[in-house]
Design a binder for these strands. Structure first.
Length: 488
RNA sequence: GGUACCUUGGCCGAGUGGCUAGGCACCGGUCUGCAAAACCGAUCACGGCGGUUCGAAUCCGCCAGGUACCUCCA
């Protein structure tokens, strides 16, 4: 299959033409959430970005296997292979079983992603469901000589690995620099090298989630699950691995090392990293406390928000920036997106009502190609959207009777709009009136018909009163040549 | 301290050597009883200094400011 898709590969820090390993097929792995608390908006940005990427790959005709894991074990509070397990800590706080925590937040995560209209991945494996495979991989890494065991805990030997293979390729860093950057660890540490990380961690007696292993009871290190599950479902080498940029330096770097040590091959052809969401210029993060939850965003209940914004407004807002750029959250920016989105969707609805003429007096033919070119350039959604807005102008001109469009052009325009707005960008109309009941609609129509009569009698006082009061209730009233239109 | 990245008009946000990005806001106009919506038009730009070049927002250097990673986070 021929395509001109170019993807920015973190490995080379360049845009590279996308050539799948197996013709017509794409294997894509994205690091999913650790389900110990509510998913926050920054996480959502990454998953929405990859949702659009997934949708576009499908549009191009690829058969995509999209794997996104759920981390439900082994993720410690600190990454120094000490500290408390996140699930255990939360379980104590909420007085629940760790698996109740996992269940609760997994459901919440799915709910939110569904509200954002993302397509579920093909496979969503969990760490706890792959304990034996993780043990096998740890064994294999031990056999290859890149790991060592100390008292029930298995560590990856970074120094030894880096003698044979480049450890810091993903962040373009040398081992010496990394070592220099690592601060001295206070307290006891049994690791041989400062950069070494745990593959398997010995359980303490009070550890809630633990499994038997050749090294005694314990639980897997955080990084190993991704190596295991991506290998299992996508093979030793697969096409795309994605995740947030914050995972690049540690998690993904270690993942490469593990997979390489076990499978003796480069695990991933294209590494893709999404940039961070910021609030007032500072990264939105769990620890900084400036991250709001999707529900707070929808309802406007967070102190930083002036009011609520709908899920599709947020999705559109995110699509208006490129996935590799930071995106700054502000009320002003969200309101701008809300209006723009509303205008786009209004135009999309109008498009369905247009009547074709014998000839086109406007130029819309190249739209699909332009949008494809934008998406082919490392999924440049903001450019694709700008082309849709250009076409929107043409739609409105035809709607106003100032220009005409031919049947063929109209049909193509309808298909392209549907394809890019719904299928690729994953946007959908949120107009509530379409789901409202009939009597309610008729009541509004009745009021507006009364207003129409008042207008015909030039009773502007009554006519304005009806319109103003409805407007105050949130309705938008538009007068047309032969009547009116309204929406909530 | 080390490493990397960023700085675009009132706001958001594309763009990597010459050609109007786009959205929102604002201003003028068309339409309208007045509005709204829509359309047309105008205004506003590339952090600072220097260099390369016929030509730089785009390449190079320096400076200033900011952010991220190096410590859990998508």
């Amino acid at each position: 299959m021929e395509n001109n898709l170019y993807i920015f590969n973190t490995l080379s820090r360049k845009k590279e033409q996308f050539v799948p390993i197996h013709e017509n097929k794409v294997g894509m792995y994205v690091c999913g959430p650790t389900v110990y608390s509510d998913v926050h908006l920054g996480n959502c940005r990454t998953f929405i970005s990859f949702d659009i990427i997934y949708r576009y790959l499908i549009y191009l005709g690829y058969k995509v296997r999209y794997v996104r894991n759920i981390t439900d074990a082994g993720h410690l509070e600190g990454d120094r292979d000490e500290g408390e397990d996140k699930f255990a800590k939360k379980a104590k706080l909420e007085q629940l079983e760790p698996m109740e925590i996992v269940q609760k937040y997994t459901i919440g995560f799915h709910e939110i992603l569904s509200i954002f209209n993302t397509i579920p991945p093909s496979i969503e494996p969990t760490a706890t469901g792959h304990i034996s495979e993780q043990i096998e991989m740890v064994k294999s890494i031990l056999e290859s000589g890149f790991a060592y065991e100390i008292d029930g805990t298995v560590y990856f030997n970074v120094e030894k690995y880096s003698k044979n293979l480049p450890y810091g390729i993903l962040t373009n860093r040398k081992l010496e620099d990394l070592l220099e950057g690592t601060r001295e660890l206070d307290g006891q540490d049994e690791k041989k090298g400062r950069l070494d990380f745990a593959l398997w961690i010995k359980a303490k007696p009070e550890t809630l989630m633990q499994w038997p292993s050749p090294w005694g009871w314990g639980f897997p290190g955080w990084h190993i699950e991704c190596s295991v599950m991506s290998t299992k479902y996508l093979g030793k080498t697969f096409d795309i691995h994605g995740g947030g940029m914050d995972l690049q330096a540690t998690h993904h770097t270690n993942e490469i090392a593990q997979s390489q040590a076990c499978n003796h091959t480069t695990p991933v052809k294209y590494w893709m990293h999404t940039n961070m969401l910021t609030v007032n210029g500072v990264r939105m993060s769990k620890s900084a406390g400036n991250g709001f939850l999707p529900k707070e965003l929808f309802s406007g209940s967070h102190p930083l928000l002036e009011r609520g914004y709908s899920p599709m407004t947020v999705r559109f807002f995110m699509a208006q920036s490129h996935y590799r750029s930071t995106l700054d959250f502000s009320n002003e920016a969200l309101q701008a997106s809300e209006k723009g989105f509303s205008r786009l969707m209004e135009g999309y609805k109008r498009l369905q009502k247009l009547t074709a003429s014998a000839v086109s007096t406007i130029q819309t033919a190249g739209l699909r190609l332009k949008c494809e070119e934008a998406m082919n350039d490392d999924f440049n959604t903001p450019i694709a959207i700008s082309h849709l807005f250009d076409a929107l102008k043409a739609i409105n001109l035809v709607y106003d009777g100032k220009e005409t469009i031919s049947v063929a052009d109209l049909d193509e325009l309808k298909i392209v709009f549907k394809t890019f707005i719904e299928d690729i960008l994953g946007l959908k109309s949120e107009n509530t009136t379409s789901t409202g009941n009939e009597s309610y609609k008729k009541a509004i129509d009745l009021l507006l018909n009364m207003r129409l009569e008042a207008k015909q009698n030039k009773d502007w006082a009554t006519s304005d009163k009806i319109r103003n009061e409805l407007t105050a209730l949130g309705f938008e009233i538009k007068d047309t040549k032969d009547g009116f239109e309204w929406k909530l």
